[in-house]
Amino acid sequence: MSFFFTALAAFFLLLMLFLFVWQSLPVWRQSGLAYVTGESWYFRQQEFGALAMIYGTLVVSLLALLLAAPVGIGAALFTAEILPRRWRLPVKAAVELLAGVPSVVYGLLGILFLRNWVYDGLQYLDLLSGDTLLTAGILLALMILPTVMTLSDDALRTVPAAQGRAARGLGLTRAETAIWVSLAQSWRGMVSALLLALGRVLGETIAVFLVVGRRDNALPESWLSLRPLVEAGQTLTSKLGGSEINIAYGDPLHWAAMVGLALLLLIVVAGITWLGNILMRRKEGESYASLH
């Protein structure tokens, strides 16, 4: 029985991979690698280049991670190292609970508050609207903050308490203990927590969809330009979540181009998960932290 159910679950994942590869074949055959590097996506002209969406996904995800990681790790350092024990539990409980707030709720708050704040706050930049890559990045950062916090806290607490006490006994301050003992020993867990968060941000659809603006072919003139941050853009997931998927179904090439986006996403996220797994395995065998 167990063998059968395990095989069934494995079959499902393989089938998903197989379907995505198979259904996206036409676009690979037509464009090859130009599908990934192509700058324009005009489905009426049968022109499919995914670069703008890859760019959007990367910008939004890195922004979210850059904003959430310092705050999340900082907060975890406080809960794990400094907060008295009797406060720890309620804080941990609140954070754990809130890590599960549905993304559509974040999306709703993004639409009703965040995009107005971004629009009003950055008025001197002449924004066209509050739906920007920056808005999506901030919203995602807020969304993964509880996850980053609680996983970093778990990682910090895998360091035996006796080592912290020994370090304090040797005359190290709290800051020095936290950094040179706890962080130094748990960095693998931290990185793995961040990779997990990255995987989640890359694949998040609903919250991004609602605030990113969904403008096709939004590529900057120069790669280092920060201007696209405050303009509308498109990510892999917001494209897949839109109504274009229904238009695409009748046309093999267009459909293949859409499925190709899914394939890219699946490969990247699976790669990141695999990396996180390797990091954790070397040190402490199987860890709960790699699955949240």
């Binding site: 395990t6 679950a9 494995a10 994942l13 089938l15 998903m16 379907l19 995505f20 259904q23 997990l196 995987g199 989640r200 890359l202 694949g203 998040e204 659809t205 997931t237 897949l240 979540g241 998927i245 179904y249 499925v259 899914a262 996403l265 699946l266 996220v269 699976a270 990141i272 998960t273 695999w274 996180g276 797994n277 395995r281 199987e286 790699s290 699955l291 949240h292």
Partner: peptide, 30 residues
């Protein structure tokens, strides 16, 4: 083999939810 199974569970856990939707659209709906 246990490590392989664990890797499988992690990867499945990481698959973005929109991809489940797309998979369902292909298999169940169509």
């Amino acid at each position: 083999s246990r490590e392989r199974l664990w890797l499988f569970l992690s990867v499945l856990n990481g698959v973005p939810s929109i991809l489940f939707g797309l998979f369902g659209l292909m298999v169940f709906v169509k």
